[in-house]
């Protein structure tokens, strides 16, 4: 972004105190502040989308915990290798 300066004898007309006072609005500031800091009014579980998302997370957590709880399937015992009996003849 380029800056350009213009120097004139009067410069830009300065606003008067009365003009500035027109824009002063402490009530609006407080209102905006309270809106910015207040918690969302609707609880998360009442929002259908958020509810489904939470349900999905709970389900996933349940499935993972169930999967981990399953006992390990014992691996088959190694079969003993019996050398073939010598054939007669």
């Amino acid at each position: 972004m380029k800056r350009r300066y213009r120097i004139t004898p009067e410069g830009r007309r300065q606003p008067t105190d009365a003009e500035i006072a027109r824009y002063r609005d402490p009530k609006r500031l407080l209102y905006n502040y309270s809106r910015a800091v207040q918690r969302p009014q609707k609880p998360l579980y009442r929002d259908p989308k958020a509810f489904l998302f939470l349900l999905l997370i709970v389900l996933l957590a349940y499935l993972i915990s169930e999967e981990r709880r399953k006992p390990d399937v014992p691996s088959p015992a190694p079969t003993e290798q019996v050398p073939p009996a010598p054939s007669d003849g």
Partner: peptide, 17 residues
């Protein structure tokens, strides 16, 4: 606010300079 602008003009008076 200026991020989207290519150029800004700043007016100064003789007194400010």
């Amino acid at each position: 606010h200026w991020r989207k602008k290519k150029e800004v003009l700043i007016d100064l008076s003789y007194q400010e300079v």
